[in-house]
């Protein structure tokens, strides 16, 4: 690990002051410390934000406000989340291990780095790790890579389960900038597509601190999260689907679908949601939803299996959610 300075401010003003000349925030550290050991990330200065009092969960406008440093365990077990946002509990519980969930935080989960093996292999070319060096994945061994949202520069997947459920729930992150001003960002605006700058994964500026996550009242009570992976536990998704559905008179009134294991960011497609709204559930409709979802899919060699897998998982989830 490269040497770094460490500071642990007691409040947000001090955190911003400590980060003024450039710093990396750390809270749970489950991803960052791992990457620092491998020298894939080598920050000069760490500012510890784990004791800023951002670890509460509270009601907000009928929804929920979740502090940035609430652990994945506490969030999954929170009675309000279990009752009103079960898709979020399910997604959290499908991720990582008991030990990691006890340490990993909500904001850290959003900001975890991608898991492409070539990103982790410091001998391999990787535009995300070392901009401009090329992409060893494309043309290399590929399996768990993105089939949506990739570019010729990067096809690394966003690995979070939590963020997939958060996208289906229309979560917004509240961000405090270095100058103390706050703004809310929809996840669509937080996560960037890789394009030709895959090293820039979010729209956050240096010094921006996620302080909380806001969940609106869920659009439906029918919520499902299903994850398919290579082993039964403690593995990243090959495909995952989060569904939040409201039924009315036997029809789908509204639906919000989000996907993991497919995209370079937690994936949501407004056209899939629009296709389902107002329709009677059925196999033909669900097949059509899969077609729409994958209309622009470009599976790199080795990832083609994700096309039929995504269609089948989507169909199974929609069947369960509309039953």
């Amino acid at each position: 690990m490269r040497p770094f300075d460490y500071q642990r401010p007691d409040d947000r003003d001090a955190a911003h002051a400590a980060a003024r000349d450039g710093a990396t925030f750390i809270a749970g550290g489950t991803n960052l410390v791992d990457l620092m050991k491998l020298e894939i990330m080598a920050p000069d200065r760490l500012v510890d934000v784990s004791r800023l009092g951002l670890d509460g969960i509270g009601d907000a406008d009928g929804g929920l406000r979740i502090g940035a440093t609430v652990t994945n365990s506490d969030l999954a077990a929170d009675p309000r989340v279990r009752r009103t946002y079960p898709v979020l509990s399910r997604a959290l519980l499908a991720g990582a291990s008991g030990q990691l969930r006890n340490k990993a935080t909500t904001a850290g989960n959003f900001l975890q780095r991608t898991r492409c093996p070539y990103f982790y292999d410091t001998d391999a070319a990787c535009n995300k790790r070392a901009p401009g060096t090329g992409c060893a994945a494309l043309g290399g061994e590929m399996r768990n890579h993105a089939i949506l949202g990739g570019s010729q520069h990067c096809v690394a997947l966003h690995p979070s389960d939590m963020a997939v459920a958060m996208r289906a729930l229309d979560a917004e992150v509240e961000v405090e900038a270095a100058d103390g001003t706050s703004r809310a960002l929809a996840l669509d605006d937080l996560y960037r597509l890789p394009g030709d700058t895959p090293h820039i994964e979010t729209s956050l500026a240096p010094g921006d601190l996620i302080t909380s996550v806001r969940l609106p009242v869920p659009l439906g009570e029918r919520q499902v999260y299903r994850k398919v992976r290579d082993r039964a536990s403690y593995a990243f998704a090959l495909v995952s689907v989060a569904a939040v559905v409201r039924m009315e008179g036997g029809r789908i009134a509204e639906a919000a679908l989000a996907f993991g294991g497919l995209g370079t960011r937690p994936w949501r497609d407004a056209e899939v949601d629009a296709l389902l709204a107002g329709e009677a559930p059925g196999e033909a409709l669900f097949d059509k939803a899969g077609e729409v979802l994958l209309r622009d899919a470009e599976p790199p060699e080795g990832t083609e299996f994700k096309l039929p897998l995504a269609r089948r998982v989507l169909k199974a989830v929609l069947t369960e959610a509309t039953r």
């Binding site: 460490y6 642990r8 550290g29 410390v33 510890d48 030990q99 990691l100 006890n102 340490k103």
Partner: peptide, 19 residues
């Protein structure tokens, strides 16, 4: 490397001691 940190299990290899 699992230990109990404030009563909860964590991977101590991913914890910076100064934190």
């Amino acid at each position: 490397c699992t230990v109990l940190l404030n009563g909860r299990r964590v991977n101590s290899c991913l914890c910076l001691a100064v934190m």
